[in-house]
Design a protein around this nucleic acid. Structure first.
Length: 204
DNA sequence: AAAACGATCTACT
DNA sequence: GTAGATCGTTTTG
């Protein structure tokens, strides 16, 4: 089955990957691959910017004031998606740490790797640089909406995060920051270089 | 039921 | 760099 071939090309990250400190997961997600398969085709992109939301003492976290209908996924088990709407757009998080400890990593930017024409069609944007630079932009490019809130990202079906295929290696590290802070500004000048496998660029 | 509030984006200067 | 759009979600009455 083609589905199995895709899962071999993009092996999904395990539950254990997500079941640890949110900052550690955020760092480790840099250089991984977001994969989405729809009826229209496959899109994949390298994660180049993330933002961690802490389980304690983080007033910017949606979970800071306890559970609500919107943030319920953040309180669930690790390895699932938390998708929320902001300003009429969707944003994707990966939930981390054990159930009951509400932490998550916001996926802020991707370097488009595969299915670029499909992303351009979905976004009505030509410039590859602008296709997935920004948490809501990447969701539009990958056709991610509230239907994926709570989605299990470890199954390797429809939507998941994967170890990158060797063909994605460029050897050039993007100058991207991991942040755990409020009011982090989106990167306006992401270099379009996918990096792996270690993630030596962190913090600040 | 109504109002206020954004983990944003786009266009424009 | 910033004003304005825009609508789902939460908070308030």
């Amino acid at each position: 089955m083609k589905r199995d071939a895709d899962r071999r090309t993009f092996p999904p990250l395990s539950r254990d990957f997500y079941d640890r400190n949110v900052v550690a997961v955020a760092r480790a997600l840099l250089g991984k691959c977001l994969v989405r398969i729809s009826d229209d085709g496959l899109t994949a992109g390298g994660i180049v910017e993330v933002e961690a939301y802490l389980p304690q003492g983080d007033p910017a976290s949606h979970a800071h004031r306890g559970p609500t209908r919107r943030n319920a996924s953040m309180f669930g088990p690790p390895g699932h998606a938390y998708v929320y709407a902001i300003h009429s757009r969707w944003c994707l998080n990966a939930v981390t740490q054990p159930a009951g400890i509400a932490s998550a990593v916001l996926i802020r930017a991707l370097e488009p790797l595969h299915g670029i024409a499909l992303m351009q069609r979905r976004r009505q944007v030509d410039n590859v640089r602008d296709l997935a630079r920004g948490p809501a932009r990447l969701c539009e490019a990958f056709a991610i909406d509230r239907a994926f809130d709570g989605w299990d990202l470890t199954r390797g079906e429809v939507l998941w995060i994967a170890d990158p295929p060797a063909s994605a290696v460029s050897g050039q590290a993007p100058q991207i920051a991991v942040s755990t802070r409020i009011g982090v500004t989106a990167a306006r000048d992401l270099p379009l270089r996918f990096f792996l496998p270690a993630n030596p660029f962190v913090s600040k």
